[in-house]
Design a protein around this nucleic acid. Structure first.
Lengths: 343, 343
DNA sequence: AGCAGTCCCGTAAACGTTTACGAAGAAGCG
DNA sequence: CGCTTCTTCGTAAACGTTTACGGGACTGCT
């Protein structure tokens, strides 16, 4: 069932059919209605390949997700909530959201190349940026409208957004310092991941402002999983000069960390203060409750949607594009896990 | 840069270019190499829309994900691990995996209609099936190769796979009975979700085999989230004739449940036995450790990939298709949360 | 009546592929 | 050398749309 079939059935030309279905001028209200009725009756809807070919646009926006080595990209609620915000904006513009899952054995760069070369999407959002991320240069080169969710060290102009890792680091360190902590451990991500680097360096800077030098023995990098948190706990406990507090770059670590401490009879907030990062359901259901940060991910998703649409519109109109950069502030939510040090 | 540009540059016809790139017969090794070199040099790769239009196939396989009301579809590791297995099989066949995220405000059925009507995928996998799921009838009607991940009450032939909810229910109940429990609560999912129904009825049957009648006051339906688990804990504690054990349909409930019990000074395994369901990272990091089930999700993903490819091949070859049905057994992993009842 | 302007609508040319068909040349054979 | 067979390649017709263009039928005006 294609446009010709409908045209034949209605004794109307295919041009008119197309105009009617696409809300274009030059077709009377009566025939438009006839076309719409017929389309519904015969279950016709335009073939996307034909339409894409002619229009030079697929109507799809990609979101590329990379699992880390440990298969847990982040708390699932994290991306899901972003998708919700993004999806609603895109749908309002007749665009579809498709998520490109980059297999664990696949190279992210070749994966993005494949997406671009096959012209599968009109716009792309990449996440989990590395400190040096060739995907960004590639996408700039190929002139595909895209947004990087996460910063990188490239100097070339592009749209990006990111969480305020520096702000979180500063608030965390300041709070811990105010509470009286002087020996503070930092649990961050692999250095090649941009946010791990940012977080660590911001912590270092904040500590320095208080006259504290962050030594390497207080820097921990574990897989961002429950198991990583468990291992982190063990390593913290094993230190001969044990820190009185630890600041986490991601909440996936918390559950394992709590349990490792519990195994050793160490109470969070009492014997060791803990500050988490992004809110996750976990934080609300740990005892003692976790001091962490809150953020509107739906809003972030909506922002992504608006920006990618703006980029595409600008491209089509041939306008010069203004690349937006937005950093999302996070608000601290005090819990019981951050207390003055014991003694 | 399209096929004509390459043809002009090489002084070769477009037909030959196409044949060379698609590994078809009728082109000499020398010219094939020239074409491949040129394609690489000029960064050419065939336009997917044109190719899809001509071939009548998009080369993409869809996986439809529905968030539940609470935005947490399942443990994220759950789907991610499935995607890994699925993706690797598809990639080996030159197919792409795209995930269709159905927004929280979108109706799953209209979403699937949109996917089908726009001919966006050659095959589709739907998950989170309802007991009565119109998507299945629709997909059968539209003759799109698809697999339902989850059973439903339709009697029409189609390929599906599911976890062995009955087996898990039986093993759980049997274990609890053997341990001495007689008053056992069941935490299941909304009845419209097929697995919630299956699990509940299998528990009921297993209990009946031991001469126990499952009464309504011991059936709990909470949102499958940490918050739901917390609420479940409260409701269990409030019962005047408190059960000695509870069996959970999904592990997302565990964290909240543990904390609610902890708040009340109730110890899992001692005052209340708990059996979880699918393994999740959580289970390994709860104290007391959770008795739960294990399953190879990568394998499940690979199975999905092989089956959907088989369906598509059969369709193309015009062969009659044999619809596979596979139920995945889960192996119990004893933890400390299931013990003989106190007294 | 003649003419300009408006409103609908049909025609046909793209968009970038793949592939059936046929032709040209080479190779093999008597 | 003539014939057949095989290999290699070019030509052109699809695939299903969208849209620029032009033409007919009206309307309104002089």
């Amino acid at each position: 069932m294609n446009i010709h079939d409908i045209a034949r059935r209605l004794n109307i030309s295919i041009g008119t059919i197309s105009r009617a279905l696409n809300d274009r001028a030059g077709v009377s209200a009566k025939t438009r209605q006839r076309v719409l009725d017929a389309a519904k009756r015969y279950g016709y809807s335009p073939n996307q390949s034909g339409r894409s070919l002619r229009r030079g646009a697929t109507g799809m926006i990609g979101f590329m997700v990379i699992p880390n080595r440990d298969r847990t990209t982040k708390g699932e609620a994290f991306f899901m909530t972003i998708f919700d915000g993004l999806q609603s904006v895109l749908a309002a513009h007749g665009l579809d959201l498709v998520i490109h899952y980059c297999g664990a054995d696949q190279d992210p760069e070749t994966h993005v190349q494949r997406i671009v070369e096959r012209r599968m999407v009109d716009g792309l959002i990449i996440s989990q940026t590395n400190r040096s991320d060739p995907r960004i240069d590639y996408l700039i080169e190929k002139k595909l409208p895209f947004i990087a969710f996460g910063r990188s060290d490239t100097r070339r102009a592009h749209t990006w957004t990111d969480l305020d890792f520096e702000g979180v680091a500063e608030q965390s360190i300041d709070l811990l310092y105010r509470l009286g902590h002087r020996r503070i451990a930092i649990a961050t991500a692999a250095n090649e991941l941009n946010f791990g680097y940012l977080y660590l360096e911001a912590c270092r800077a904040s500590l320095a402002r208080h006259g504290i030098v962050l030594t390497d023995d207080l820097i921990f990098r574990e897989p961002l999983t429950e198991a990583g948190g468990y291992s982190l706990g063990g390593r913290l406990l094993a230190l001969r000069d044990r820190p009185t507090a630890v600041s986490l770059v991601q909440n996936t670590l918390t559950l394992g960390l709590y349990q490792r401490l519990s195994d050793a009879g160490v109470v969070p907030g009492h014997d060791l203060s803990i500050i988490g990062f992004d809110q996750s359901p976990n934080g609300d259901f740990l005892r003692p409750s976790l001091t962490q940060f809150r953020l509107s991910l739906t809003e972030l998703g909506e922002w992504l949607g608006c920006q990618i649409i703006a980029l595409i519109e600008a491209r089509r109109a041939g306008r010069q594009i203004r690349h937006a950069h937005k950093i999302w502030p996070l608000q601290i939510e005090p819990g019981e896990s951050a207390q003055p040090p014991a003694r």
